[in-house]
Nucleic acid binder design. Structure first.
Length: 382
DNA sequence: AAATCTCTCAACCGCCGCTGT
DNA sequence: GACAGCGGCGGTTGAGAGATT
């Protein structure tokens, strides 16, 4: 009878049996571990040394803490990952009782997904702005424009009510602007992209869309994009904010540097407080215990390094926010498409929910920070 | 109730760095 | 310096459990 593939070379593979576990435990209790190569033979196990070491380190070790990760542990993992990246063993060293394998698994199956849901790039820990999230943000913002932003609505009557075609065109415009870093020469020349052509075919929308897009820069005077086109690219609000941010960071005078800082890579979105008014970030941070957690000196020092790094990336791209549709679509795991991601995130009960999402810290704060809500239907559109 | 899909996580694999010879 | 052995690390896989249709 042929040996199964898991027993070639006389070495067993696959799941450990209770008997094997007991043999390993007994041996290590008597002789200690180490010498993993010879251990299995001495312990009477038909396993390779590596397999024994892994089984011991990840499962049988007496000091291993089992069970779900606590709120604090999850927070620590996110913070440490923002600094260390995928250095699971180093992260594990800071979480007593947790193994690198366990943390790695937890990251890949839980935290990573949560961050993606909330529009955060799990690699850079910065907002992951893409067209679909943009749709959600735009939708939310346009439906909730505070009184002081009483720009002409796209419908022409009172509050903005945008139909799907308007929203699509708006997004297209935004994308084309972003992709060209608001370069006035490009915007004004005749080499129009498909999206520009699309826009031009909808003349009833274009100017108002441009103005509406500008309205999404609350810290800037209300200047139309066409006026912006006249300006040099290095004076566009995105680049200016990038430069200011960089300078502040270089001078170490950032009062708050958190993963939620709107000064980071998503500078043109704003917050509403409970009265529906735009809030200053520091004010928000002071009034939110959740935000305060990430405003500690400890966290600032951890995060500043990443901010600098990301800011450099941003500047290398001439200040344009780092998003593009193609990379989004190619990088998004099939199991969490942008559309399903947004829809599921939109239902997150981060305010007073009782589901597991309640445990979201980073993600919930990102939701609060960017006011991302359910703006999409099942098709991913309005 | 059955089939199918999705998720989780233990375990494996290949690579890398360190150490001793 | 070159080589071999070993332990450790991070990425990936796949079986089983649970959820959904």
């Amino acid at each position: 009878m042929a040996k199964s593939s898991s027993e070639k070379n006389g070495l067993k593979k696959g799941p450990w049996t209770p008997e094997e576990d007991q043999k390993l435990i007994d041996y290590i209790q008597k002789h200690g571990h180490g010498k993993w190569r010879t251990l299995p033979k001495n312990a009477g196990l038909k396993r390779c040394g590596k397999s024994c070491r892994l089984r011991w380190a990840n499962y049988l070790r007496p000091d291993i803490k089992r069970g779900r990760f606590s709120f604090e542990e999850e927070e620590a993992i996110i913070q440490l990952h923002s600094v260390l990246g995928n250095k699971w063993s180093t992260i594990a060293a800071n979480l007593p009782g947790r193994t690198d394998n366990e943390i790695k698994n937890y990251w890949n199956t839980h935290i990573k997904k949560k961050l993606l849901k909330m529009g955060i790039d799990p690699v850079t820990h910065t907002p992951r702005l893409d067209v679909l999230q943009l749709a959600s943000i735009l939708n939310t913002s346009l439906y909730n424009l505070p009184p002081q932003f009483n720009y002409p609505s796209l419908s022409g009557i009172g509050r903005s009510v945008i139909n799907p075609s308007h929203m699509l065109s708006l997004l297209t415009t935004l994308l084309s602007c972003q992709n060209r870093n608001y370069n006035p020469d490009v915007l004004n020349n005749n080499q129009l992209s498909d999206s520009d052509t699309l826009l031009q075919n909808q003349p009833q929308c274009s100017q108002m869309q441009l103005d509406s897009i500008q309205a999404f820069q609350p810290n800037q005077p209300h200047v139309s994009l066409q006026e912006n086109h006249i300006a040099k690219s290095n004076s566009n609000p995105l680049n200016m904010e990038s430069q200011v941010m960089k300078t502040k960071l270089e001078n170490h005078i950032i009062p708050i540097a958190t993963p939620f800082s709107h000064q980071n890579t998503l500078p043109n979105l704003w917050l509403y407080n409970s009265e529906g008014h735009i809030s200053d970030l520091p004010t928000m941070a002071q009034s939110s215990s959740a935000m305060q957690r990430f405003s500690s000196p400890k966290f600032n020092s951890i995060y500043n390094n990443n901010l600098l790094e990301n800011q450099n990336l941003c500047n290398n791209n001439e200040g344009a926010p780092n998003f593009n549709l193609s990379s989004l679509l190619s990088s998004t795991p099939s199991s969490s498409s942008p559309i399903s991601t947004l829809n599921s995130s939109s239902s997150a009960t981060f305010v007073n929910g009782t589901t597991e999402d309640e445990r979201d810290t980073y993600g919930s704060n990102m939701l609060l920070m960017y006011n991302i809500s359910n703006g999409l239907n099942d098709s991913g559109l309005l």
